[in-house]
Amino acid sequence: MPDTLHVLNGPNLNLLGTREPEVYGRATLADVEAACRAACERHGLGLVFRQTNHEGELVTFLQQAQGSVGVVLNAAAYTHTSVAVADAIKAVGLNVVEVHLSNVFAREAFRHHSFISPVARGVICGFGIEGYRLAIDALASSLADRRVS
């Protein structure tokens, strides 16, 4: 069984492609999943891909990711509001890359604060769905570095 990477998506990402396409693009969540699956396959990784509109369910998904290679997390609005999501990341010691489709720093001021960034390995924003592939590549690279050591 290959090492598994989790890609977790928060509220309203199920509306990708139709929700504010000038901000989030025209790609759908199915397009994101296909891109993530292809990136994981290139690295020999299994993929768990999930989306939820519920904060508690996102916390459960994070807990279930314990022991995985890592998590690509687009917590969407929960990035700016959820201590519970940040606590879940810390509680299970996850290797997380925070991803945002848009450049949150070029948007409203409330989007400039993240509860996740302080507990994440890194942050990628502003590259659309390409950010997910970049995050997967980064996590796969860190896994390869650990295997060599």
Rank of each mutant, 00 (worst) to 15 (best):
M1L: 13
P2Y: 12
P2R: 15
P2S: 15
P2F: 09
D3C: 03
H6S: 14
N9T: 06
G10K: 02
P11E: 11
N12H: 04
L13Q: 13
L13C: 07
N14H: 12
N14A: 09
G17A: 11
R19H: 07
R19P: 05
R19I: 01
E20M: 07
E20A: 13
E20S: 13
V23Y: 14
V23E: 12
Y24G: 02
G25P: 04
G25Y: 09
R26N: 12
A27I: 08
A27F: 10
A27Y: 13
T28K: 07
A30F: 07
A30L: 08
D31H: 09
D31N: 09
V32K: 13
V32G: 12
E33I: 09
A34C: 05
A35E: 14
C36Q: 03
R37P: 00
R37W: 11
A39T: 11
E41T: 02
G44T: 01
G44S: 07
L45G: 03
L47H: 07
L47C: 09
R50V: 03
R50C: 10
Q51R: 05
Q51I: 00
Q51V: 00
N53D: 07
H54N: 12
H54S: 06
G56T: 01
E57V: 03
V59G: 03
V59S: 06
L62T: 00
Q63P: 02
Q64Y: 10
A65V: 04
A65D: 06
A65C: 05
A65R: 07
Q66K: 15
Q66L: 04
Q66N: 06
G67R: 07
S68T: 02
S68I: 07
V69A: 13
V69T: 10
V71Y: 01
V71N: 03
V72K: 11
V72R: 09
L73F: 06
A76I: 06
A77K: 06
A77F: 05
Y78T: 01
Y78C: 00
H80P: 00
S82I: 01
V83T: 06
V83L: 12
V83H: 08
V83W: 02
A84D: 01
A84R: 02
D87A: 00
A88N: 04
A88G: 01
I89D: 07
I89R: 05
I89C: 02
I89L: 04
K90V: 02
A91Y: 11
V92G: 12
G93D: 11
L94Q: 08
N95Q: 13
V96M: 07
V97E: 12
L101N: 09
L101K: 09
L101P: 09
S102V: 00
N103Y: 09
N103Q: 09
V104S: 08
F110M: 08
F110I: 00
R111S: 06
R111W: 01
R111H: 04
H113Y: 11
H113K: 10
S114D: 05
I116C: 03
I116L: 10
I116N: 05
P118A: 08
R121C: 01
G122V: 00
G122A: 10
F127L: 15
G128T: 02
G128S: 10
I129Q: 15
I129G: 13
I129D: 15
E130P: 06
E130A: 10
Y132P: 05
L134S: 10
L134K: 11
A135Q: 02
A135M: 05
L139K: 08
L139G: 01
A140I: 06
S141C: 08
S141D: 15
S142G: 10
L143V: 04
L143K: 15
A144N: 12
R147H: 14
R147N: 07
R147I: 01
